[in-house]
Every structure is written in C-alpha cells, then in structure tokens.
Simulated scan of single mutants.
Amino acid sequence: MTTAPATITGIDAYLDAAARCGGSVAPLLEALRATPPGSLLPLPGSGRTAERFRGLARVAAVDVTAARVIEPHLDAVAILAEADAPEPEHGTTWGVFAAEAPGDALLACREQDRWVLRGRKPWCSLAGRLTSALVTASTPEGGRRMFAVSMGAPGVTVEAAQWVARGLAEVVSGPVAFDHSPARPVGGDGWYLDRPGFRWGAIGVAACWWGGCLPIVDALIARARKRPDDTILAARAGELYRRLDAGRLALDDAAARIDEHEVPDPAVLAHAVRGTVADAVAATLDAAREVLGPAALAFDEGLARRCADLELYVSQYHRGRDDASLAGHLAGGLLAW
C-alpha cells in the first residue's frame, strides 16, 4: 500500500536526507537548517491541509525517525504563524516542549521589561541539538502560556537523559533546566491549548503514524501474493489494507473540514482521527510480529527499526484516556449524516 504521487517540492531535500539517514538525526537537522521553514509544507487551515498531511505521511513512509524530527519543527512554524509572530529564521531548528510531569514545574515571570523562565521542563525531545524551542510555562496569574526560547540562551541547561529506547534511538527526550532564561511570549494565557491549531497539530502526528505503516503493509501484501493459497495471510493483508484506508479517509476528511472551517469541536475531530489511525498502527505492528515473524524483525534492519520507531511514536496515544476525553466533548447530533 503506497502513497499516491504528490507534487511537494519544498520538502524534497528533506526526503533525500530521510532516505539516507538510517535513523540518525544529524542529516535530518542539517536538511532543516538548509531549508527556509516556510517552504517545507503548507500551514494547516491554509487551503492545502491535505498536502501537509500527505507530506508528513510521505516522510514517515521513508523513515519514521525523520517524521519524528520534522513534525515538531513544522508544528512550531505553524504555531508562530497563528500567533502572528515572526517566522523562524532560516538556519534554525525548532522543538515544541509542552509536556508536564509530577515534580517538574516551569515558571514564567517578568523581570523589569522582559520575561524569564525558571524551573525544569520534562520530555524535551532533541533539546541538546536544536537551536530554538516553544515552551509552555505557568504564569503568575496561574495560567499556562507559550514562550519562544533560544536553546543557547543564558541559564538553559540540557540535562542528561536516561534514554534507553530502541525505537527513535537518537530522538533523545529529557529534561531541560531554566535559570532566569530570557523568553519571548507567544500568545496569551491559555492560547496554546485553546486554539484549534493545537488539535490540527495532533492530527499531523497521526498522519506520521499512518505513513510509518505503509512499508510494513506493503511487505505483508507482497508476502500474500507469493502465497496465494494461504487464505489466513491474505485475510490479514486485506484487513490491514482496510484499516489503513479508513485512516487515510479520516485524515483526508479532516483536512477538508479544517480548510473549510467547518469543525464544531476540534477536539472531537482530532480524537476520532487519532484513534482511528492508532488502531490501524496497532494492527499493523501485531501483523508484523505474527505474520512476518522473528526472522524479519531479527534480520531485516530497516523493518526492525521501523517497527521499533513506530511502536514508541504511537505510544504518545493513550487509548483509554483519549477516548474518555473524546466522550467528554460529545453532544447529540455529532454523528448525524
């Protein structure tokens, strides 16, 4: 199951880097530094959201690590555009650090005529290798606000991470400490989470998950063709195609609705799309283990790494908690057709 040909030009250099990266982030970051941020993929809601989602899926189909690196960079570009903030400078690489964890707190406060950050932020992916980041912090009013920071600014310390993951091995996520580090506010209190674009970014991640499945499904379909008498194998290949096609339709429908600005509740759309795609990913990884088996996972380096990368990436989705959140947004009539 392969993606349809796409006419995406700004991302071609990054796709070349993805094809040769072998799971290493160095060539990927080099490609991002060499490409003007606004030329990579269209912004969500720009009338070309389907192209954005297809582009993310296309990157992940080449290499899942490459998708994991570019997606937050593109999300940062979109967030800054939504806030009417200056576009990231050419040569910069960006992350979005918005996770929270018990025991870690990041506070923003005013000192004279500037904002500074104090405290610790967990789960900062690639923090030691990026030039810049968008970071959420608590404000004196008790709200949560986003700030742009330079990772080389005074008081910014990337702490050592106990990163032992076999998937996304070089996309190290660890804590960053801030000690009166200068920061520039992006939007007001609550803006980051309340805006529809927060949900569009979450759907973009699902597009990456979807694209990461494609080579695995292609391998299963190829094996089924070689064994026409194996009806169990054929059934599994057919099931996966059906699940992935449902995910594609969900992503395509979401892109159209985003561009038409016809989304009554962005959270409902995002949860539904992400859940549909995550279910397809789980079925794909199960089939890789059960059908392709230990030989493929032990001796096919590309397939083994892809499965490990994809399994860690999709673990961002928490089925029970996210479905419960979805239920909290539901109201009568949303399923009317």
Results as ranks from 00 to 15, higher is better:
Lys121Tyr: 03
Arg114Leu: 04
Asp104Ala: 12
Trp123Phe: 08
Arg110His: 09
Leu134Asn: 02
Ser138Val: 11
Ser132Tyr: 00
Arg110Thr: 12
Pro86Tyr: 10
Arg120Asp: 00
Gln112Tyr: 03
Ala105Leu: 15
Cys124Leu: 08
Gly142Arg: 02
Leu134Gln: 03
Met146Trp: 01
Ala81Leu: 11
Val96Leu: 13
Asp113Ile: 08
Gln112Arg: 14
Arg145Leu: 06
Pro102Ile: 07
Leu107Ala: 14
Leu106Arg: 06
Val116Tyr: 00
Arg144Cys: 07
Leu130Ser: 04
Arg129Pro: 03
Cys124Ile: 14
Arg145Asp: 02
Asp84Val: 06
Trp115Gln: 07
Arg120Val: 11
Glu89Asn: 11
Thr136Leu: 12
Met146Tyr: 00
Ala127Met: 05
Glu141Met: 04
Leu106Met: 08
Trp123Pro: 00
Lys121Arg: 13
Leu106Ile: 10
Ala78Val: 13
Gly128Asp: 05
Arg114Thr: 15
Thr93Gly: 10
Trp123Thr: 09
Cys109His: 14
Thr131Arg: 06
Arg118Gly: 04
Leu117Ile: 09
Val77Phe: 08
Gly128Gln: 04
Gly128Met: 03
Ala85Pro: 09
Thr93Leu: 09
Pro122Ser: 06
Trp115Ala: 06
Asp84Cys: 10
Thr92Glu: 14
Glu111Asn: 06
Leu126Ile: 01
Glu111Lys: 13
Arg145Ala: 05
Glu89Asp: 15
Ala83Cys: 12
Pro86Ala: 15
Leu80His: 11
Ala105His: 13
Pro86Ile: 14
Ala127Ile: 05
Arg120Ile: 08
Trp94Val: 07
Ile79Met: 10
Arg118Leu: 10
Gly103Asn: 09
Gln112Ser: 12
Val135Thr: 06
Glu82His: 10
Pro86Met: 11
Ala127Lys: 02
Ala105Phe: 07
Glu100Pro: 01
Gly91His: 12
Thr92Met: 06
Val96Gly: 02
Ala133Cys: 06
Ser125Gln: 01
Arg118Gln: 12
Pro102Glu: 15
Ser125Trp: 01
Pro122Ile: 01
Arg118Asn: 13
Arg144Tyr: 00
Cys124Met: 05
Ala101Leu: 13
Leu126His: 07
Ala85Leu: 10
Lys121Gln: 09
Trp115Met: 03
Trp94Gln: 08
Asp104Met: 15
Arg144Asp: 04
Ala85Phe: 10
